[in-house]
Simulated scan of single mutants.
Amino acid sequence: MTSFSDPTAVSGYAERTARIVPGLRDLHRMAGVLLAERAPADARILVLGAGGGLELKALAEMQPGWQFDGVDPSAEMLELARTILGPMAPHVRLHEGNIDSAPKGPFDGATCLLTLHFLPPAERLKTLQQIHLRLKPGASLVVAHHSFPGDDPVRDRWLSRNAAFAAASGVPVRQAEGSIAAIKERLPVLSPAQDVDLLREAGFADIDLFYCAFTFKGWVAHRA
């Protein structure tokens, strides 16, 4: 898996991620649409896993009146975010760390994209609970990450499809195929049903699937 402190990996993050995540730019736009359903024109939005700055830039361009707090544990990825944001940087405050480093809010909405699959279930639940505490009542949370059944034949079939997509998008075949073992060994991926259960346990309601692309799934949920 990618090291988020390796300079070469960080510099190539945007191009690499666009190749392995189907519809990445559309995912960012969909997140903006979903947040805007409930967030006001002057909303304050929490972005967890903000390193790289891709979703921050997309959201800021869609909603010039919004202000953002972006949180990420990698200093190198946050520096990349500053570069990617360019003239949109004044709309964003960046914080190095995990959810405990995030301001208390209250926020009008939050995103957590391509991040939760790195966290084991207990830490994932704690993170969702802490996001919940920082949101205003009724505010939206948009999440998207690897989520697929743990049954070996089903899991392997979907991982192979994901690798084939990456190879078709320009990732070297050997590297794409190597991601199958890396994901199985290093990511504590949950099934879609388990992901929804954790959202409910953290206090979220009205949970809807909005994005489904090979091994990636995305949901919008609301603070009860």
Rank of each mutant, 00 (worst) to 15 (best):
A182K: 08
L54P: 00
A36N: 04
L56H: 02
V220W: 01
T115P: 02
P121K: 10
H145E: 12
H132N: 15
A110H: 03
A176K: 02
V142H: 02
C212A: 12
P188W: 15
P7Y: 09
G23F: 02
N98C: 04
G86D: 08
A213D: 11
H132I: 00
M77I: 03
R44I: 06
V92N: 04
R161L: 01
F204N: 01
L209M: 08
T83L: 10
P192D: 00
L59F: 14
K136V: 14
G52L: 05
R82V: 00
T17Q: 10
Q194F: 05
L133Y: 11
L190V: 10
P40N: 00
H132Y: 10
K217E: 12
K184Q: 15
D195I: 07
I99K: 09
M62I: 05
G12P: 13
T215R: 06
L85Y: 11
S11N: 14
L24F: 01
L94P: 02
I180Q: 13
E123F: 13
L199I: 02
T8K: 14
A224L: 10
M88A: 14
V47L: 08
T215F: 09
Q67V: 12
A41L: 09
D69E: 12
R174M: 09
A110W: 05
C212K: 08
R19S: 08
E61K: 10
P22Y: 01
I207A: 03
G51D: 12
L116Y: 01
A18S: 09
E76C: 09
R161V: 11
V154N: 03
H117L: 07
P137M: 13
M1E: 11
L209H: 00
C212R: 10
F214I: 15
G203C: 06
D100V: 01
S169T: 13
R200Q: 07
M77W: 03
H117P: 01
Q194T: 04
R19Y: 09
Y211E: 13
E79M: 08
H145M: 04
D156C: 04
G178C: 08
